[in-house]
């Protein structure tokens, strides 16, 4: 892969209209259906506390969340590695645990943490996996996909973390799966490797593969996902397209007031939080708030240092959700 392959703005990357995205996830068409799914661990800790969502055929769905939010615990249930303690999961119309023989040949899985024998070479590893995979791609093709062709004779233990991640991806793609599970696929990759993986995932999606991706890189979800859900403490807190998720969130204005200008002098219409001279304003009407602020600054002859205004991004939404969820828990406790 070269950087030349990376397209700029493709027309098909524009955000799908809300209604179409929701409609395309109708039940008949769903590749993944999770309904009220729960998972409890031995100590009684409930890692997944009633999660419901569906992923339509050909869709790229991202599951976001802080560490320990329950993403991997959820995905493992969909992969058929464990049985949910409550609720139901269907993958390609089957129970992924009890009917694994029907599901496994049609899915590809990349675990957050999976391993290969360290003393095997890369090629030997792919061959082993190919022998256990229906309709496997040729070894050379699989390695070429992830840019590891030149590393075929190297032992797995000598690969870098990023190369190991790409080998794992090659295994997940080996059987040309209809449904691909990627649990934090770019963790440990450098910027270029990450872009290459994004490009590959996008191509697969364009080729009709349904993808479920977990990540804690918000940029990754923003770039790739058709729809996404944000998990926090075992629950889905919000879900939809990036536009839908960010729409309800406030925009943010930040700046610093010069010495001698107290925050109290700011116009009352603005909901400002002050940390010394540093001010942060959250607003649902960015243009009007900015207008009010700038007018005041000109009339009062105040210079706003490091002025920065931005619409709600996924990051804003994410931080906001994580924060408010923790606060409401504190209140409840």
């Amino acid at each position: 892969m070269t950087s030349d392959d990376i397209p700029g703005n493709r027309p098909d990357r524009t955000v799908t209209p809300v209604t179409a995205a929701s409609a395309s996830a109708s039940r008949s068409d769903a590749v993944i259906e999770a309904t009220g799914v729960r998972r409890r661990y031995a100590g009684g800790f409930e890692a997944v506390a009633g999660v419901s969502f569906s992923v339509a055929r050909g869709e790229l769905f991202a599951l976001l969340g802080t560490n320990g939010a329950g993403k991997t615990s959820t995905v493992e249930l969909l992969e058929g590695l464990a049985v949910p303690d409550g609720g139901t999961v269907r993958v390609l119309g089957h129970d992924p645990f009890r009917e694994r023989a029907a599901v496994r040949p049609r899915i590809g899985v990349m675990l957050q943490e999976g391993g290969f024998p360290s003393e095997l070479t890369v090629t030997e590893t792919v061959r082993m996996w190919a022998g256990c995979t229906s309709g496997a791609r040729p070894t050379g093709e699989a390695l070429e996909l992830v840019g590891l062709s030149h590393r075929g004779r190297v032992r797995v233990k000598q690969l870098s973390g990023g190369e190991r991640r790409r080998l794992d991806l090659a295994m997940a793609l080996l059987g040309r799966p209809e449904m691909l599970f990627l649990d934090e696929p770019t963790t440990g990759l450098d910027a270029e490797g990450r872009r290459d993986t994004w490009e590959l995932v996008r191509e697969l999606r364009d080729g009709g593969t349904t993808v479920l991706l977990t990540t804690h890189y918000l940029e990754e979800a923003e770039t790739l996902a058709d729809r996404l859900a944000i998990m926090h403490r075992g629950r889905i807190v919000t879900a939809g397209t990036t536009a839908e998720v960010t729409a309800a969130r406030p925009s943010r204005i930040r700046f610093e007031l010069p010495e001698g200008v107290p925050a109290a002098r700011l116009p009352l219409g603005l909901r400002a939080a002050a940390d010394g001279q540093r001010i942060e304003i959250r607003t649902h009407r960015l243009q009007e708030s900015l207008d009010e602020l700038l007018t005041w600054a000109r009339e009062s002859d105040v210079r706003l240092l490091g002025l920065d205004a931005r619409s709600a991004s996924l990051e804003e939404a994410f931080l906001d959700i994580a924060q408010s969820a923790s606060e409401s828990e504190k209140v409840a406790a």
């Binding site: 022998g131 256990c132 229906s134 996909l145």
Partner: peptide
Amino acid sequence: MASTTGTTGTGTAARTTVRGRLTALG
């Protein structure tokens, strides 16, 4: 880079057998 397209799905692809899988692991 190799193409990611081609047959998606396994309707026609040969399924693995117990013997084939054990041979690969072995």
